[in-house]
Amino acid sequence: MVIAVASRLLLRRALLAVPLVFAVVALTFFFIRLAPGDPAQILAGDAPTPEFLAQVRAEYGLDQPVWTQFLAFLAKALTGDFGTSLYSKQPVFAVILERFPATVLMTGTAMIVASIVGILVGVASAKRAGSHADTLISSASLLGYSMPGFWVGQLLVLLFSVSLDWFPATGMEAARASYTGWRHIQDVAWHMVLPVTTLALFLLTMIARFTRAAMIDALDQDYVLVAEAKGASRNRILWHHAFRNACVTTITVIGLEFGAVLAGAVVVEIVFGWPGLGRLFYDAIYRRDFPLLTGAFMFSSLIVIGVNMVSDVACALLDPRIRR
């Protein structure tokens, strides 16, 4: 029954996602071309002759009207060809998929860390609502929520890499040592500490704040009193009764904020020199690599939509009143 509900919901969300992805692709396609800068200029190098520039434009179809370019892109996209990166000359999706695992590793770890810590902090804070500990946690999370990622990242680097030399400041693995097996995993984990902390901080404070509010609301409900009158322990009331209700809010927040996390990942990857999609996208913007940018936006919107679909379905499975 659960599977039937989940698949029906997923199908409906997937159908809604089609026009959304199309809109993202179309908007990206046109907006990038409105931005100043000419990829032909960048590709042709310093002081090219007008003939050479025209040749480069013709080669990449950049001399065509934007509409024609768009239709050509769509026609090719339907066959699974999303174009070729102007810079690396590789198929766009191959370039993206190559960088994808590094980003999944960092973003995924940050999401998991932020969810677990955020929920624990939120619940602990709601349990003691109004106490000094709660005020302290709330102030700390407001602080964490107000600090921009690039700044936090640089502060962490200054403190933990430059001054204390505890964690590496950049990269994903030690450049000179080529570790294998368990040692390699340890090395990557070591490199992840600072970027994951930076990225997780914002989401963590969001999750903690919303979970706290939802838990306070849930703990104030009659069914909590009824559960207490049945002889339920404090922990059972907290997790089985109140959190089962509050987690719908938590999951919605995680789903909604995932886009912001992905955007934050771009910044964090640049600050920490992490070889993921963020770095790739940043370079693509700098190089006016139109096909790669279109592919990048399409890809990230697909991921954001996918994550939101999963969070919608999770909410529906957790709260029977949302199902239908």
Partner: peptide
């Protein structure tokens, strides 16, 4: 308790 509408946990 008084209010049967809110005395049951809605998600269980």
């Amino acid at each position: 308790f008084q209010d049967p509408m809110t005395s049951f946990n809605p998600v269980l």
